[in-house]
Computed example of a mutant assay.
Amino acid sequence: MLHLTKPLQNQSAAGASGSTVTTLLSLLPGLALAGGIAASAMAFRALTGIQALSPLILSIVIGMLIGNLRRPPVACRPGIGFSMKRLLRLGIILLGLQITLAQLVSLGLPGLAVVTVTLTVTFAAVTLAGRLLGVDRGLTGLIAAGTSVCGASAVIAANAVVRGRDEDVTYAVACVTIFGSFSMLLFPLLMLPLHLDAVAYGLWSGATIHEVAQVVAATFQAGDVAGQYGTIAKLARVMLLAPLVLTLALTLFRARSTGSAKTGATPFPWFVLGFLAMVGLNSSVALPPALVQDAGLLGTFLLSCGLAAMGLQTHMKQLAAEGLRPLALGAFGWLFISGFGYLMVRLAGF
């Protein structure tokens, strides 16, 4: 009997191993396509030297161009799906290594209050405006997250609990990209008319502009002090991404129950705990700067892969079907966070 069991166990192990290899091989075409797009986007920014060109945005644009000109082969679908789910979440986790608690503390209580209150009130205002405009609930949540927190990264993270369609994610990313770019171009021109010194301007920009790259581009034009305050304020918003996603999972987008049965159950965003763990690690251990930099590049690459995959699956006709109301919602969010953030900076005494 013993002699019969061992061959069966060996066959079972061999079968499991063969299945794993087959699964990995099925992912390769899609991973190669998404990875190639992401690498091209990162290389383009490096070659041009234009730091405001986010690889995340470039990746989704390139993916959409390719996907609309010619749909990816069926063989690419498993890898594209893997990129949209697993790689995106791993990229969010690695984002935590770019933040330390000491950076947040350096803003001081007034600065942290500006960032936190602006984020919270903006999210609530955009959510309410979305209802009044009749915008789909999921798309409203994504635009609200992207506007109030940190652009494309927040849209990606929030979608883990919002569970919007690929078109919703793409539309939300487009909104935060367009209006964040407006801020990047206009804010430097408003510094003097609004009577903002370097600290106040950096804090205002970091608390209101959508993407990290856009904040860097807008604030360092006003000098190193403005750039440093802008970057730290922006990282504080990124840190608040974790509690926002957890709150969404437990409140607005929690599982709905019908009697004893649950419908539309929202999965718990475990990757957020990984994000917080990386923040804790980076705050408690002096990690080598080269390691942190490499982790940042890897995180950007993984996020770009996911957005490239999303772009490949998004078609312009489906985006056009959303209409102009979501765009109006994005415009409202942009104007609201810009104005309310400025008011908060003034009330805080900056």
Rank of each mutant, 00 (worst) to 15 (best):
L2K: 14
A14L: 14
A16W: 15
T20L: 13
L25Y: 13
S26M: 08
G30Q: 07
A34H: 10
G35L: 07
G36T: 11
I37V: 15
A41E: 04
A43N: 00
F44E: 06
A46M: 00
G49C: 05
A52G: 09
L56Q: 04
I62G: 01
G63P: 01
G63N: 03
M64L: 10
L69M: 12
P72S: 02
V74W: 00
R77H: 06
R77M: 06
F82A: 11
F82S: 07
S83L: 05
S83H: 03
R86H: 14
R86Q: 13
R86I: 12
L88D: 08
L88W: 01
L88R: 02
L88V: 11
G96K: 02
G96C: 12
I99G: 05
L101R: 02
L101M: 09
Q103F: 07
L104E: 04
A113T: 13
V115A: 09
V126M: 09
G130K: 02
L133T: 08
V135E: 05
L139F: 00
L139C: 03
G141R: 04
I143K: 04
G146V: 02
G151V: 11
A160T: 14
R163S: 11
E167R: 08
V169R: 02
Y171A: 13
V173P: 06
V176T: 08
F179V: 00
F182L: 15
S183L: 14
P188W: 05
L189F: 13
L189D: 05
L192V: 13
L194P: 04
H195N: 14
H195K: 13
D197H: 06
Y201Q: 03
S205A: 15
G206S: 09
A207Y: 02
V215C: 14
V215L: 11
V216S: 01
F220T: 11
Q221M: 01
A222Y: 03
D224E: 15
Q228S: 15
Y229F: 14
K234Q: 12
M239R: 00
M239T: 08
M239I: 00
L246S: 04
T247Q: 01
L248G: 07
L250R: 14
S257R: 12
G259A: 01
A265R: 12
P267V: 05
P267W: 01
P269C: 06
P269N: 12
P269S: 11
L273Q: 09
L281H: 04
N282W: 05
P288S: 00
V292Q: 13
D294H: 14
A295K: 05
F301Y: 10
C305F: 04
G306H: 10
L307S: 08
A308L: 10
M310L: 15
M316R: 06
E322A: 15
E322N: 14
L324D: 12
P326G: 05
L329Y: 05
F332W: 07
F332L: 06
W334L: 04
G339S: 12
Y342L: 15
V345A: 13
R346I: 05
L347S: 03
